[in-house]
C-alpha cells in the first residue's frame, strides 16, 4: 500500500502526470454526467466542459496547435450547432427555456390531434 502511495506522489511531481490525474479525473466525472443526465442541455454543457478540459491536456502534452483548434472548434462551435439543433427538435424534457415551452405546447396539441 505504501508503495502505491509512493508511486502516486512520484507521479504527481511530474507535470504531465499531475495534470492527467486532476484533469483526467474531472473529464471522467463530466463524461459520466453527460451520459447519465436527464436533461439534454445539461449533457451538452458537460460535453463543452470535456472539450475545454482536453485543451489543458493538449497544452501539457506540448501540442499547442491542437489545443487552439480544439478550443475554437470543440467547445465553441460544436456546442452552438448542437444547441440550435436541440431547439429545432423541441425536446420535451428541457422545458426551462421560454421558447421551448411554447414549442412544446404546440407539439403537445399536435400530438393530441394525432
Amino acid at each position: 500500500m505504501t508503495d502505491f502511495f509512493k508511486s502516486l506522489i512520484e507521479m504527481l511531481r511530474d507535470p504531465v502526470g499531475a495534470m492527467s490525474v486532476l484533469v483526467g479525473g474531472l473529464m471522467i466525472i463530466f463524461a459520466l454526467f453527460a451520459v447519465e443526465s436527464k436533461k439534454i442541455v445539461d449533457s451538452l454543457i458537460a460535453l463543452s466542459a470535456i472539450s475545454l478540459l482536453s485543451v489543458l491536456l493538449f497544452v501539457v502534452l506540448k501540442a499547442p496547435d491542437v489545443a487552439i483548434t480544439e478550443a475554437a472548434v470543440g467547445s465553441g462551435l460544436a456546442t452552438a450547432v448542437m444547441l440550435f439543433a436541440l431547439w429545432r427538435v423541441d425536446w420535451k424534457a428541457d422545458s426551462d427555456n421560454q421558447q421551448i415551452k411554447k414549442n412544446n405546447k404546440q407539439s403537445d396539441e399536435a400530438g393530441e390531434k394525432r
Binding site: P64, D65, A67, T69, A71, A72, V73, G76
Partner: peptide
Amino acid sequence: SPGGGFPGGTTIALGVL
C-alpha cells in the same frame, strides 16, 4: 505560431455567431 487556417476560420465563424 500555433494556429492556422482552421482555428482562424472557426474564430471568424464564432464572430458571425
